[in-house]
Amino acid sequence: MKKLFVIGVMMSSFVFGQKEKDTLSVERNLETFTGATPKKQKPDPLSKKGQMFVFFGWNRAAFSNSDINFSGNGYNFQLNNVSAHDRPTKFGIVYFDPTWFTVVQYNFRAGYFIKDNLALVLGIDHMKYVMDQNQTVNFKGHISDPTYAGMVQNGQVNLADEKFLTFEHTDGLNYENLGLERYQSLINKKNIDLVWSYGAGIGVMFPKSNVRLFGNERSDRFHVAGMGTDVRTSLNLVFWNHWMARLEGKFGYINMWDIKTTLNNKPDKARQDFVFGQVLAGIGYTFNTKKYN
């Protein structure tokens, strides 16, 4: 009897000790028999290879002073230390009407995660650049037309009356760029995530410059005028794994060496370079390109 009792205890210990292992074996056998596959854990947003996001928002921008050189038939001169500002549209329905969205200073992003936490981001930054009209600037160069040469007094020209020059990139100062951004999770909750990103970009400048020089007909056409580069950082608040609110800051450099100043094919052009700062905010949506159960 004692031997039977000891054998029973040993067998019980063996059976209960193997319970978890046997259960896993049964589950594996069941998966093999039924064809079922184990569930994949759904990844956190803005973190895994294969995820994507799209974003649309609005910006405010600031620009450094710049020297602008103008050249063409009968003139070649430079205006020094020219100041400018952006031109935000007054808030209203225009910000939400898709038929009018290009009127405002807007931003678009489409990102794809090529590696975990690393995204390739295509961006369109539609800023607006307006030369301050009420300013007197230093002049260097020559103008053959006596009317406009006479507007230069003591090496300076007053731009206030708009007769000498109006100069804008308001349709707009379009920076078409491609960037790399690294993402890092700061807060990870059930229905809310906070993700920080930083990166850099480079692209072409495709402005529609509104320029009227010497009273000529205003130049107003899209044209690849130069290049830009930037560094950027953002905070992304993601709700329910998909909806995203984004706040981004950007600092960059723009060099445009072929700004069209006439409507015809004459060689008239302007060139300038400056640094810019931009703050933008908006909404987006993030999703997985890979299927997760």
Rank of each mutant, 00 (worst) to 15 (best):
residue 1 M to S: 14
residue 1 M to I: 12
residue 2 K to I: 03
residue 3 K to Q: 15
residue 6 V to G: 04
residue 14 F to G: 14
residue 16 F to Q: 05
residue 17 G to A: 12
residue 17 G to R: 09
residue 21 K to E: 14
residue 22 D to K: 06
residue 26 V to P: 00
residue 27 E to Q: 11
residue 27 E to M: 12
residue 29 N to L: 11
residue 37 T to L: 11
residue 40 K to Q: 08
residue 41 Q to I: 14
residue 45 P to L: 03
residue 47 S to F: 11
residue 47 S to W: 04
residue 48 K to T: 11
residue 50 G to W: 09
residue 54 V to G: 04
residue 58 W to M: 13
residue 61 A to D: 10
residue 62 A to E: 08
residue 62 A to Q: 12
residue 64 S to R: 07
residue 65 N to S: 15
residue 66 S to N: 12
residue 67 D to W: 04
residue 67 D to K: 10
residue 69 N to C: 02
residue 70 F to T: 01
residue 72 G to C: 07
residue 72 G to M: 06
residue 73 N to T: 03
residue 74 G to A: 15
residue 75 Y to F: 13
residue 78 Q to K: 14
residue 84 A to G: 09
residue 85 H to K: 15
residue 94 V to R: 00
residue 94 V to A: 07
residue 97 D to V: 13
residue 102 T to P: 00
residue 104 V to S: 03
residue 108 F to C: 02
residue 110 A to T: 15
residue 117 N to T: 04
residue 121 V to F: 03
residue 122 L to D: 10
residue 122 L to M: 13
residue 128 K to V: 04
residue 131 M to H: 02
residue 133 Q to H: 08
residue 133 Q to C: 07
residue 133 Q to K: 12
residue 135 Q to E: 09
residue 135 Q to S: 06
residue 137 V to W: 06
residue 144 S to H: 11
residue 145 D to H: 05
residue 146 P to E: 09
residue 146 P to F: 04
residue 147 T to A: 11
residue 150 G to V: 05
residue 150 G to N: 15
residue 153 Q to V: 15
residue 157 V to K: 06
residue 158 N to L: 05
residue 159 L to W: 02
residue 162 E to Y: 12
residue 162 E to T: 11
residue 163 K to W: 00
residue 164 F to S: 08
residue 164 F to G: 09
residue 166 T to R: 06
residue 167 F to C: 01
residue 171 D to G: 03
residue 173 L to P: 00
residue 176 E to M: 15
residue 181 E to D: 14
residue 182 R to C: 04
residue 186 L to V: 08
residue 187 I to P: 00
residue 187 I to L: 14
residue 189 K to Y: 07
residue 189 K to Q: 13
residue 196 W to M: 10
residue 196 W to F: 15
residue 197 S to W: 05
residue 197 S to A: 13
residue 199 G to F: 01
residue 204 V to I: 15
residue 204 V to R: 07
residue 205 M to R: 02
residue 207 P to H: 04
residue 210 N to T: 03
residue 211 V to I: 15
residue 216 N to W: 03
residue 217 E to P: 00
residue 227 M to Y: 14
residue 233 T to M: 03
residue 235 L to G: 05
residue 235 L to A: 10
residue 239 F to H: 08
residue 243 W to I: 12
residue 244 M to Y: 09
residue 246 R to C: 05
residue 247 L to G: 13
residue 248 E to M: 09
residue 250 K to L: 10
residue 251 F to N: 02
residue 251 F to L: 11
residue 259 I to M: 09
residue 262 T to R: 14
residue 265 N to V: 02
residue 266 K to S: 11
residue 266 K to V: 02
residue 268 D to P: 08
residue 268 D to I: 01
residue 270 A to K: 02
residue 275 V to I: 12
residue 276 F to N: 01
residue 279 V to F: 15
residue 281 A to C: 07
residue 281 A to M: 11
residue 285 Y to M: 06
residue 288 N to M: 01
residue 289 T to C: 01
residue 291 K to W: 05
residue 293 N to Y: 09
